[in-house]
Design a protein around this nucleic acid. Structure first.
Lengths: 132, 132
DNA sequence: AGGGCAGTTGACGTTAACGTAACCCCGAAC
DNA sequence: GTTCGGGGTTACGTTAACGTCAACTGCCCT
């Protein structure tokens, strides 16, 4: 409980590959709650855990606001079943969203591929007089 | 060359499922060039063709600016080979981008699925005393 | 005293694609 | 005469996630 391994903003940036601005921004958005030593921020183990989840969430396409809500659930509920279930559902919804998005993207890809073949024919038809 | 079949803004909106604001916006961005009858806009066949391509492009994830450039190529070059090739390349690049995006999305989906299974276990472990 | 660096706050800028008033004009209908 | 419908223009608002200053403060070094 003592060696919290507090980290400065620079160390955090280096460790997670983000800018200072980002960390301050996350604090303003109440995603992180670094301690203060005078003016300076000192990030705790908890902050690191949260940041890790935040960055992971971003990869999943969660917005910062969504992540804040999820993190709050983790915090407030001392891991109560109801809250875990809620989190689980949110994640499942997001997953469904992502799958829909992927499917749409695939459709668009196929359609674009079709167009490209068409375009290729057109170009080819300009090379030769189009008469076989 | 005479029956241009001019359409009012309302008709265009109905035909393409967009708002007037959108059409005016596209004109401001030089994507459309409706004629004027006094104040009123009258959309030509050419505008309809362009709008159709624009909306198709949007589904592919092209930005309006990208579409503007592509449309300008179509216009200026009277279908010259060089310009078709250019268009083709832009489209191919975009396609590659989309495929990368899809792959990333798929990775994220798989990862999230993994997390969900983990979450499901956790929840289950709260139901029963976790001792088999 | 002066430099230099690390950190802070505050506030405005950015990008995309429109939405949303607010206010004006014009012709037809009641 | 007036209200309604359908235009039009100008211009500010929106959303997300930071970027980019500017102006300080505090501390170590020499």
């Amino acid at each position: 409980m003592e060696d919290e391994e507090l980290m400065t903003i620079r160390e955090m940036c280096a460790a997670f590959g983000v800018t200072p601005r980002t960390l301050r921004f996350y604090e303003a958005k109440e995603l992180l709650f670094p301690q203060r030593e005078g003016q300076k921020r000192l990030f705790t183990r908890r902050d690191r855990g949260r940041l890790k989840l935040i960055l992971r969430g971003k990869r999943f396409g969660f917005s910062l606001e969504e992540m804040r809500q999820l993190l709050d659930l983790y915090d407030r509920g001392d891991a109560q079943e109801e809250q875990l279930k809620r989190t689980y559902e949110v994640a499942r919804e997001r997953l469904a969203q992502m799958e829909r998005q992927r499917d749409e993207l695939n459709e668009a890809i196929e359609e674009l591929k079709g167009q490209l073949e068409w375009g290729a024919e057109m170009i080819a038809s300009f090379r030769r007089p189009a008469a076989e």
